[in-house]
Design a protein around this nucleic acid. Structure first.
Lengths: 257, 257
DNA sequence: GCCTATTGCGTCGTTATGACACAATGCTAC
DNA sequence: GTAGCATTGTGTCATAACGACGCAATAGGC
């Protein structure tokens, strides 16, 4: 990976190295302490927190750019990453109101600067294992940390809408795609898996029916170990049968018709 | 709607009026004589047929641009139109090999012409009522006509991949969204609706189970009329209950969890 | 060693699904 | 006009999927 440029360098060189008009934003979901988390950054350019995003190099595939952004923010590659929507409203990018914030940091950009032009952004969402992430702010940001999904109210530009759409998509996908491999540790218990589903869907599920359904999909392997140390009966540990998991990722879980 | 510019005008002015780097392509599905059709155009720029596409005006919403392209090619507005994927490979747009074709038509463009630059394209798919369409070639094309989905082999650039992805998406959506309103006439018979499903999915379905399932969704209204004139027992005519149809469009058909 | 919260496993009734039977109907052929 | 026939409307039956819930096993707390 090429070393990251400083924010000033990006501002100065961007027009020459990036594909114009196109940006991407990543909604990075993690799961920790029974709560669904999203990774956000605090840009110097705005008062609000924002989704980690970036631009596409002139010779770079769009998907590769998304992978790169994710790698830069989380240190992780080989993760579940999927585009889910394009946000193309003419009015969506309004960087102009943030020029004053740049000025505060001693960064002056002209009114015709490439960053102030209209951008169409491609939304990607990622599912990552919380514990593996090393949060890393980008050059334009001061901070980068996990937020509980319910804490988030207002975000930079239209990023809240992008986040909401990502969550909707995730909930839909839950119905016909396997999930969990990138959100849970290698070994996990059935109650943990259930908590993941309940958290994402924001509903409660019946413990016994959930177990039946999950085992019915045939993507789980029950290990011989149990998770001791909890205050009660020790639950079995499970891991995913990756061969069947990947198959289900391609074909879906119930097949439909 | 502003009058369409000539191809030469578009070529000359495009850089000033269009959003750079971004294009869109429409996969327009129609249903006729029990076959699934796609509307294609024959561009002057290529030997192959292509998906109708276009560019986004600098102050135009992306979705509006897609609606505009569709209106220009089919004369129809108020239709089912949905973005389904972004195609962002760096190598996908290779207009250079087509420069010679331009030349044949007496159109000369320089090597740095905006049209030859890299484009990221947003795929939209539309479902339209075949009989209502007035096919209209755009300024860059000689011809515009329906193709049977099975006849199509090679298309311009990566348009075949775009078409395939659209078809995959359509088949997936069929599992949890109502369909048919934009593909069938106002009044239709149950066998006709079934044929639509069978054609899209490329499978055969049991007549009686299909009827039970469809009526179970509660989006159909059975009319008092029957379709006479067929060689056998006259089937009932149906129309969609649009209130429930729209509700199902938003909430899905089975709900999932 | 007993108590308790949690887990593993099972039952029961309802609903959805796949396979198929049979009667009704509209046109055609004679 | 009527018999024949292909197609449609409706129903049945067995099986699978699903929601609600009972009960025994067990690990740690006391």
């Amino acid at each position: 990976m090429t070393p990251q440029k400083t924010f000033r360098e990006v501002l100065a060189d961007g027009e020459g190295i990036f594909q114009p008009s196109v940006s991407l934003d990543c909604v990075i979901f993690g799961f920790h302490e029974n709560e669904l988390k999203v990774l956000l950054i605090k840009t110097k350019a705005a008062d609000h927190w924002a989704l980690p995003g970036g631009f596409v190099f002139k010779e770079e595939d769009l998907d590769d750019a998304a992978t790169r952004v994710l790698k830069e923010r989380t240190g992780i590659d080989d993760i579940f990453l999927q585009q889910f929507h394009v946000f193309g409203s003419a009015k969506r990018s309004d960087w102009n109101i943030h020029r004053s914030n740049f000025k505060k940091d001693g960064i002056e950009i002209g009114p015709d600067h490439w960053l102030l032009k209209r951008f169409i952004t491609v939304g990607y969402y990622a599912l990552v294992e919380f514990a593996h992430v090393i949060t890393t702010p980008d050059s334009s940001s001061e901070e980068c940390r996990w937020w509980d999904i319910n804490e988030i109210e207002e975000l930079f530009m239209d990023h809240k809408q992008i986040l909401d759409k990502a969550l909707d998509t995730l909930r839909l996908q839950l119905n016909h795609l396997p999930i969990g491999y990138n959100l849970l540790p290698q070994k996990f218990t059935m109650p943990e898996l259930q908590k993941l589903y309940e958290t994402i869907l924001n509903i409660t599920l019946d413990r016994r029916n959930f177990q039946r359904r999950m085992t019915g999909f045939g993507i789980l392997k029950r290990l011989k170990e149990t998770r001791k140390g909890g205050a009660h009966r020790a639950p079995f540990l499970y891991s995913f049968d990756m061969r069947k998991y990947r198959k289900a990722l391609k074909q879906g879980l119930h097949g439909g018709w």
